[in-house]
Nucleic acid binder design. Structure first.
Length: 93
DNA sequence: GAGCTGACATGTT
DNA sequence: CAACATGCCAGCT
């Protein structure tokens, strides 16, 4: 069957798409919701490598509530999250 | 010193 | 080469 279907990515997309406006979710949260809490690295990789326009990956932030990074440019992410008032702080690290 | 988290790097398919 | 999954390493608490 569709063994080629990375359920992990499917779950990640579903979770991230379910994030409400003004709300952010951490990599760990998404990874856990995806069923693999140890794959939070992969979450960033998926979003970084394959950005889906249906997925507000800019709402996926680090555990600190900071933006962390963004494949489109952190500035873009900062601006969006700031507009949503969902961003705690810009790249603090 | 130990534990947790990363938008990277490497490996495999 | 692209995409997914896991690991090493570095930084913070």
């Amino acid at each position: 069957m569709n063994s080629q279907l990375p359920a992990f990515t499917q779950a990640v997309f579903a979770v991230v798409k379910g994030i409400q406006k003004g709300q952010t979710m951490t990599y760990k949260e998404v990874a856990m919701a995806a069923g693999q809490p140890s794959a939070y690295r992969a979450v960033g990789n998926i979003l970084n490598t394959n950005y889906n326009p249906d997925i507000p990956c800019h709402r996926v932030v680090r555990s600190d509530g900071t933006a962390g990074g963004y494949n489109r440019g952190v500035d873009q992410k900062i601006a969006i999250l700031t507009s949503e008032k969902a961003l705690k702080f810009s790249s603090n690290r």
